[in-house]
């Protein structure tokens, strides 16, 4: 027997079929939790986002027009809920429109050949975590949806209600900001070794 489609479950949910809405919850709760966790980066907040998302979906299902798929709609609610939570917690940051990218390369240290064992250490993982936390919330969203969830630019644009050009711009700047922070880590971590080797 073919599985019931999301569209059918949405139609039934609009007619107050609570089992149908329950089935939508079962289908998407893990995905919503996963996305929320990657955006807010702690389990307690992720669970709050999960509950908030499905509460909003339950209250709004009758006004869901079906212009997008249910999955896009539920991810959009998740992203908005996560964004509000991140904004509450974040210190004021510079406007995301204030570009701070360099216009020309400035002889950056190339740490890309770093041995794999060093790349997996906890200190580096912590640095990566901090680099992502320090991104403006709007950058974190694009970074997670594109580089972790591996959605297309068009999908991310639809979920975040942005143009594809804006998604690409934010993604590029988010990647650079994280990379620049890691570059700082590698240049610091290289210093003791140089001293130990008698290099000044």
């Amino acid at each position: 027997m073919p599985a019931v489609t999301d569209e059918e479950l949405v139609r039934k949910s609009k007619e107050d079929d609570e089992r149908a809405f329950g089935e939508l919850v079962s289908r998407y709760e893990s995905k919503v939790y996963s996305l929320a966790l990657r955006m807010v980066r702690n389990p307690e907040d992720a669970e709050d986002v999960l509950q908030d998302t499905f509460l909003r979906a339950y209250r709004g299902i009758k006004s869901f027009q079906g212009a997008s798929t249910f999955s896009t709609w539920i991810y959009r609610i998740t992203a908005n809920s996560a964004l509000m939570r991140l904004r509450k917690k974040q210190l004021p940051t510079v406007s995301i429109d204030n570009a701070d990218e360099r216009e020309t390369p400035v002889n950056i240290a190339d740490w890309s050949p770093t041995p794999d064992e060093q790349l997996l250490n906890q200190e580096l993982q912590h640095e990566m975590e901090e680099a992502i936390r320090s991104l403006p919330a709007e950058f974190q969203q694009v970074f997670v949806l594109r580089d972790i969830e591996e959605m297309s630019n068009a999908e991310v644009a639809e979920i975040l209600d942005l143009s594809v050009a804006a998604v690409k711009s934010r993604l590029h700047r988010a990647r650079l900001k994280v990379r620049n922070r890691l570059a700082g880590y590698f240049s610091e971590s290289a210093k003791p070794k140089r001293r130990a080797m008698g290099v000044h």
Binding site: S30, Y33, T104, A109, L119, M128, R175, A183
Partner: peptide
């Protein structure tokens, strides 16, 4: 210089994806 920019950006994404490769499980 541009090669170093490219290589470190590539490595940043590799690291980030590696860290998030494990599927998350609801508590």
């Amino acid at each position: 210089d541009c090669r170093a920019e490219f290589d470190t950006l590539t490595m940043t994404l590799k690291l980030y994806k590696h860290e998030h490769a494990e599927p998350t499980v609801m508590p």
